[in-house]
Amino acid sequence: MAAAAAAGAGPEMVRGQVFDVGPRYTNLSYIGEGAYGMVCSAYDNVNKVRVAIKKISPFEHQTYCQRTLREIKILLRFRHENIIGINDIIRAPTIEQMKDVYIVQDLMETDLYKLLKTQHLSNDHICYFLYQILRGLKYIHSANVLHRDLKPSNLLLNTTCDLKICDFGLARVADPDHDHTGFLTEYVATRWYRAPEIMLNSKGYTKSIDIWSVGCILAEMLSNRPIFPGKHYLDQLNHILGILGSPSQEDLNCIINLKARNYLLSLPHKNKVPWNRLFPNADSKALDLLDKMLTFNPHKRIEVEQALAHPYLEQYYDPSDEPIAEAPFKFDMELDDLPKEKLKELIFEETARFQPGYRS
């Protein structure tokens, strides 16, 4: 834990890192770190609560700039109880001085990944967590956004079992017609939660990839272990087919990539493993919904509104309290091709509203 900075004593240090967030945020305490930044909790002297502050230093890398800009653009436009918001952003007053960006968010005690390492969940908890994931996802999908990296560590939890989806750095506007060349190379989302079509096709992607990830998360809540822990690309596919069985001819016809289709045709026939054999203690309604989410063919996979209306979630289902976005989200430009200098300018502009004396 960093010592509390005395008023006016300059930035606090946390594990050798400068955290320049005073005077409003003090009493910093280390939480963890990701690929390009550290997260601390801090005391907000204005709202009198502890908050989470993520320090991001992305400006050396085009990919990190892209992810940072995506996350900020999306989260500043989203407003939903099951999606983490941005409360404040701290950065230098000029673009030349801006080396880091500090993002202030609600402090959540833990995440689903940490929880599943230590606790076996009751059916009631599984049901409530799944409902909140789908409630947040309904809003995301209504904005025409794909999260693309749903996994237990991106689901934040607090002691009252509130759940918030975080990390929109890989999110995209849904565009089933656009052929994202190089899709697989830039697709760094965790393999275990990846839909089979991501490994088999490169053309376009749809909201059904997020539903697949939610199915993987439900299976993990039922058993405290990942359902498809593939060691590499082909191993991942083999794990999936080992449980779902061989795809039907109709399902194979959806695979545009001939090499991928021929690979699947070359494999020995596998039978589907019954879900109640894998999860003998699970609620039968939970397994019915799991089956509809972990469907090989993305066109037959359940959609988020149908999933919310499934009998497993009937005690929570309330369409009048499951809000959607006001308007579909649009990125003005494809960020993939922009140089990091341009992305830095866009991050600077996007964060201006939090600067003292800002006038829109």
Rank of each mutant, 00 (worst) to 15 (best):
A2G: 04
A2H: 09
A3K: 11
A3Y: 12
A3H: 14
A4L: 05
A4F: 15
A5L: 04
A6D: 05
G8A: 10
A9V: 11
G10A: 08
V14M: 08
G16K: 07
Q17R: 11
Q17P: 05
Q17N: 12
Q17E: 11
F19H: 03
D20P: 05
D20E: 00
D20H: 07
R24V: 10
T26I: 01
N27P: 10
L28F: 04
S29K: 13
Y30V: 14
G32K: 09
E33T: 14
A35W: 07
Y36S: 10
G37Y: 01
G37M: 05
M38T: 14
V39A: 07
C40R: 11
S41A: 08
S41N: 11
D44Y: 00
R50S: 00
R50K: 03
V51F: 05
K54Y: 08
K54M: 00
K54H: 09
K55M: 04
I56V: 05
I56S: 14
S57Q: 14
S57F: 02
F59T: 15
E60Y: 15
H61V: 04
C65D: 06
Q66P: 03
E71Y: 13
R77N: 10
R79M: 12
H80D: 12
H80F: 13
E81V: 04
E81P: 12
N82Y: 00
I84Q: 07
I84F: 00
G85E: 13
D88M: 15
I89H: 14
I90A: 15
R91V: 12
R91Q: 12
P93R: 10
P93Y: 13
E96Y: 14
E96P: 14
M98Q: 14
K99S: 07
V101G: 04
I103L: 10
D106L: 15
T110W: 07
T110N: 03
T110C: 07
D111T: 05
D111C: 05
D111Y: 00
Y113I: 05
Y113D: 12
L115Q: 00
L116Q: 01
K117Q: 06
K117P: 09
N123R: 09
N123G: 08
N123Y: 00
D124C: 12
H125E: 02
H125L: 00
C127A: 08
F129G: 12
L130Y: 06
L134F: 08
R135S: 02
G136H: 09
L137H: 01
K138V: 08
K138S: 11
K138A: 11
K138N: 00
I140V: 08
H141W: 12
A143Y: 13
A143K: 12
V145L: 01
D149K: 03
K151I: 06
S153H: 11
N154V: 02
N154L: 01
N154F: 03
L156M: 02
L157N: 04
L157P: 03
N158H: 06
T159P: 03
K164T: 10
I165E: 04
C166H: 05
D167Q: 06
A171N: 08
A171G: 07
A171D: 03
D175E: 01
D175F: 09
D175S: 09
D175L: 06
D177W: 09
H180A: 06
F183S: 02
L184P: 02
L184K: 05
L184F: 05
T185P: 00
E186F: 10
Y187I: 09
Y187Q: 04
V188M: 03
V188E: 03
V188T: 07
A189T: 01
T190G: 01
R191T: 03
R191K: 02
W192N: 03
Y193V: 01
Y193T: 04
R194M: 02
P196S: 02
K203Y: 05
K203H: 07
T206P: 01
S208K: 12
S208M: 10
I209R: 01
D210V: 00
I211V: 05
I211H: 01
V214A: 09
V214I: 07
C216R: 02
I217Q: 02
L218P: 01
M221T: 10
L222W: 12
L222H: 11
S223W: 06
R225L: 01
P226K: 14
Y233T: 01
L234P: 02
G242S: 06
G242Y: 11
I243S: 03
I243P: 04
S246V: 12
S246G: 09
P247N: 09
E250M: 13
D251S: 12
L252V: 13
I255M: 09
I256D: 11
L258K: 12
A260G: 06
R261Y: 07
N262V: 11
N262P: 08
Y263A: 11
L267I: 15
L267M: 00
K270Q: 11
V273D: 14
P274K: 11
R277P: 11
R277N: 13
L278R: 13
L278V: 12
L278A: 10
L287D: 04
L290Q: 00
L294S: 03
T295M: 10
N297S: 04
N297G: 09
N297V: 08
P298I: 13
P298H: 00
H299F: 11
R301I: 00
R301C: 03
I302C: 12
V304E: 10
A307S: 01
H310L: 00
P311Y: 09
E314Y: 15
S320N: 13
E322P: 15
P323S: 05
A325Y: 15
A325N: 14
P328R: 08
K330S: 08
F331Q: 14
D332M: 09
D332V: 01
L335W: 05
L335P: 10
D336K: 07
D336F: 15
D337L: 10
D337H: 08
L338V: 13
P339T: 01
P339H: 10
E341S: 12
L343R: 07
L343G: 09
K344C: 14
K344M: 00
L346M: 01
F348H: 11
T351K: 10
T351Q: 14
A352G: 12
F354T: 11
F354A: 10
P356A: 15
P356I: 15
Y358H: 06
S360G: 07
